[in-house]
Design a protein around this nucleic acid. Structure first.
Lengths: 341, 341
DNA sequence: ATGTTTCATGCATACGTTTGCGCTGCTACA
DNA sequence: TGTAGCAGCGCAAACGTATGCATGAAACAT
């Protein structure tokens, strides 16, 4: 049998199908969409012809004619933080079931920004999902100028855009409450990327709740939202004299919490006996027995669903007002926090 | 007024620019490409007009006319293994500098395969990078039928396709040599996904070299290329009575080695004092002080470069024969292997 | 001064699809 | 029997770009 198996050589188009069916190309186009103006009999005939010939619509041509590409730009920052890899995977899976495809764009530094934004326009994306802190303002502005709807994920919008995020503030508070209830009294917070609203909100929720409860204000260490940053912060904490040393550490991202735990372990500090640890995100690694990390898990599936909903609505109606959806994360108390009072 | 309609709100097209420059659209098209047939003066004039108007070519229209989309399909499997996340990031970065964009496709189970393959054709991808074991045969066949060049990364081709991979066999041998030189004598290998040629080759290299050196054939455990699989295998090993227990474990992927190390640690087994461990891939986590894992690092950057080169060549000339590039990995001896003889 | 190149550009058409509008017949109602 | 209404379909014009071929003019050689 021939390499192609199906088609008799040429790629099937609406025109070829039309010729075969003895109708006009427009009829084929409409029939394939189930347009009720075409009789059921004709629709069936064309449909079976299409599958027989292995017809695949040329999405690009459709875009040109209709203005809709079915393409969503997914702008990623670094995926060093596994949370973003998980987010991406979820986005790909859900977009695919909705018949959307993702154009993957990397938001590197500086000059790349323009290239990234260019691509968004050149490929006529219908909308855009942004998960990167750095380029949000620039690309966001460009998208707004060209009427491309934008939804930020895990970010609050700095500009004209909608957003879906976890209620980071509330999550930070929840951690503070939990530490307090466990009888912990000396705190540290490992901060994230200072440009990320997400990190700041988590920290703010934590700190404000401690203050409100008249608990000691936490020591603040920089972690930069990376494993290495968390590790370094953990080392710094481990080096402190016992009386000064915090008995509970909140890292505003799991990946940093994991780094800190590794540092503690290497320094001979036991978790949670000597020091309690909590993170935020609920990445897969947090549930590994080796860490069993207490954390606030982000509702990843729901976040992506809502983000695509928001985007879809704004693609259908460009004039919809911006909207921010805040979803509550789920506190998962696991083994890294000392029990009881 | 209808004739002029110069409103800067209008999206600039070749036609718009042509009208403004007082030339034909074809001249604009050629000028923007730097076609030497157009005089330098005209080219300059049009170029400046284009930037002034913020002209962005419509890639989709270009594709329709020229047949080249500049789009590369990137077919991913699960990114549970961080190696693939790193690979993806590298691919995005390099593709972007070459002016290629990536259409992200997820290779889920079963039914998704068809949807995935459909998308490849519908969006007229110029070529396709496949990193997923499961769907390689199916999607590969479809691509071949439609003359879409395919390059497998980290896979050897089962079918009509080119490929770039690390020399997995040689890497497995290198691990065996290193274990032997360290005086280790009782071995275990934690196997990967049984459908993945990569995993099998690593294992084969390891086993054959041990055999060739008249060393004991290794115990074989299943790890399924996941953290959890590695962890379970580690637990199984840790449960063994000391005299039977291997003194060296080769996990054919770092993520499994890390799982096994966690299991050892939890079981009170010290690495490398009680047991030596080696992995394969060189993922970021392997270099963390908490693991400091001996491994064979894959030349990620080089692999992606070669893969894109292969793809480019086959896009330019569809009749180029398939080619498989094997790159040597780099053995990184770190702290998880007992020193000396 | 005439014929021949070379250069710079325009014309037309193609790519595959969508979509507004118009054209047939047929049915039904008066 | 005439005519309005409607179901079913075709025509043709987009969408933005690329490209083979034709064209006109200038430069060159004869």
């Amino acid at each position: 049998m021939a390499a192609s198996g199906k088609g008799s050589g040429e790629r099937a188009t609406v025109v070829t199908l039309a010729r075969l069916a003895g109708v006009a190309a427009s009829t084929v186009s409409r029939a394939l969409k189930g347009d009720p103006r075409i009789s059921l009999a004709t629709r069936r005939r064309i449909a079976s012809l299409a599958t027989a010939r292995g017809y695949m619509p040329n999405v690009l041509a459709r875009t040109l004619a209709s203005g809709r590409s079915g393409l969503i730009g997914l702008v990623l920052g670094s995926v060093e933080n596994p949370f973003y890899a998980e987010l991406m995977q979820e986005a790909v899976a859900q977009a695919s079931t909705r018949g959307l495809r993702l154009l993957l764009l990397h938001a590197g530094a500086g000059a790349m920004e323009d290239r990234t934004a260019e691509a968004l326009l050149q490929y006529q994306v219908d909308g855009c999902l942004i998960t990167s802190a750095e380029l949000s303002s620039h690309a966001g502005r460009i998208c707004a100028a060209h009427k491309v709807p934008v939804v930020m994920v895990n970010r609050v919008p700095l500009l004209h855009a909608s957003a879906v995020a976890c209620d980071n503030f509330q999550g930070g508070q929840a951690i503070a409450d939990m530490f307090g209830a466990a009888g912990l009294r000396r705190f540290a917070v490992i901060r994230g990327n200072p440009d990320s609203s997400t990190s700041l909100e988590r920290e703010r929720g934590f700190v404000e709740r401690l203050t409100a409860d008249r608990l000691q204000a936490p020591l603040r260490l920089e972690g930069g939202s990376t494993y290495l940053g968390g590790f370094a912060a953990g080392q710094a904490i481990a080096r402190m004299a016992k009386p000064d040393r915090p008995d509970a550490v909140f890292a505003v991202a799991d990946i940093m919490a994991i780094g800190a735990m590794d540092a503690f372990r290497l320094a001979g500090l036991a978790v949670p006996k000597d020091i309690s640890v909590a993170g935020f995100d609920g990445i897969a690694a947090s549930s590994r027995p080796a860490y069993d990390l207490t954390t606030v898990a982000q509702p990843l599936h729901e976040m992506v669903t809502r983000a695509l909903d928001l985007l879809n609505a704004r693609i259908a109606d460009t004039d919809l007002p911006d909207e921010t959806v805040l979803l509550r994360g789920m506190l998962k108390v696991r083994g890294t926090v000392r029990r009881g009072a």
